[in-house]
Design a protein around this nucleic acid. Structure first.
Lengths: 234, 234
DNA sequence: GTCTATAAATGGATAGAC
DNA sequence: GTCTATCCATTTATAGAC
């Protein structure tokens, strides 16, 4: 992550007239336009020619940088994983107070890479490598959330058996994973679906919070309800 | 629905030697094998030739019966809708007691037609007619569940604001829609995914019940917990 | 109603020149 | 690094004989 010799501007200058650009830059641009196209049309509906066009390079050149469409998808998935990792890594080890913030940030990342969940099953059968990575990430996410919930239960913050705490964690993961997807389906105009509106995102946070709220007790519950209310559409 | 002149056996007899079969029977068989293939491989990965092969007819003949692949998908979706309608229609208007049964039966239908939710987004963009039908069904499902939950709230059975009751209903719909899908993703071997095991189905019921349980109070909650426990894997 | 043969279009991927 | 041209496989759908 500490590559990038020379500033972008000096690179551009050095590339002038040669007709060549740094491989790094081209690869980055391919990923950027691919992400945009995948999100807009769904990965299965974006062809390699389509990507090459948008990146303003030839199909042949595209395959010089990425031998298979799968390679592009995997590279983007790694970006997604890294972004998610930044969030949980930055979370201050388990305070209830900023749980809502973690949820919110997570939804933003899920939105940025919404193509992943849009055709998740199909992508995972087409690209087995993606399946194993996704499985790993999902399980570890569930496990982390489950541990967090069971911790709350032990601390007496929520009233739930270990099984219920785990079920709660799984439901949180499920809603986080599919909420924006379902919301896009519900409110999609006939036009291609662009980025989810702030509404859809806020509603998602509300949905997740409303999974947790009823388990809380007394004071804590009120606190949560106040936060949740901020995420209501009205 | 009251067609079917003559029994199946007399039809078969009448068809002998002519090389022709009743259009009804052929169409049914096409739908049956399509459903099986879609569920096994995912609709996008099943070609019309594939279907023709499995139905033991020629590609040309397939297109005599169904002009487009979309027609097959839509016919199957109508089957699905009808099956769901049977469940909610048969439910004895709102007793809490057999809510778990409705959930269980719903999961079975969702499982029978799991190809629908597997590639939902992609199918809906490919077939706009499907999108509108699905949207309608989803919204009416949410609305019914929401009304049910708000009713429980009014009756004092659960402690939830109207907004929370609605959020609960949405989460119930979401989990019901995507649970088996996610579960197939989690536990899929490299082999094609067959019907969900009884485990996955029971766990799904448990997940949905655990959405509702924490909202209940005292006696009712205990009752629900007892039912839910029956759905635990162990 | 059913078949064979094939059209028409698309998509992933490669070869070889510059 | 980049391009043009093209191969090869696949897929939907049709034409026309039986």
């Amino acid at each position: 992550m500490q590559l990038e010799r020379g500033t972008a501007s000096t690179q551009v200058a050095a590339e002038k007239g040669t007709g060549k650009r740094s491989a790094q830059r081209t690869r980055q641009r391919v990923l950027d336009v691919s992400l945009a196209l995948f999100n807009e049309l769904g990965a299965p509906n974006v062809t390699t020619n389509h990507i090459a066009d948008a990146a303003e390079i030839s199909p042949g050149n595209l395959y010089y940088h990425y031998r298979h469409k799968e390679d592009i998808v995997m590279a983007l998935y790694e970006r997604y994983e890294a972004a998610v990792g930044d969030i949980v890594g930055g979370a201050s080890g388990g305070a209830v107070d900023d749980l809502w913030l973690v949820i919110h940030l997570t939804f933003e990342v899920v939105d940025d890479f919404r193509f992943i969940h849009r055709d998740l099953s199909d992508l995972c059968t087409a690209y087995p490598a993606l399946r194993v990575r996704f499985q790993r990430g999902l399980e570890s996410g569930i496990e982390r959330m489950s541990g967090y919930c069971r911790g709350l239960a032990r601390a007496g913050e929520i009233e739930a058996s270990p099984e219920e705490a785990h079920a709660l964690a799984v439901n949180v993961s499920l809603v986080t994973t599919y909420w924006l997807n379902l919301q896009a389906l519900r409110h999609a105009s006939l036009a291609a679906m662009g980025r989810a509106g702030d509404d859809a995102l806020s509603e998602g946070v509300f949905q997740v919070l409303s999974l947790i709220t009823p388990y809380l007790r007394g004071e804590r519950q009120e606190e949560f309800r106040r936060v949740a209310r901020r995420y209501l559409p009205n």
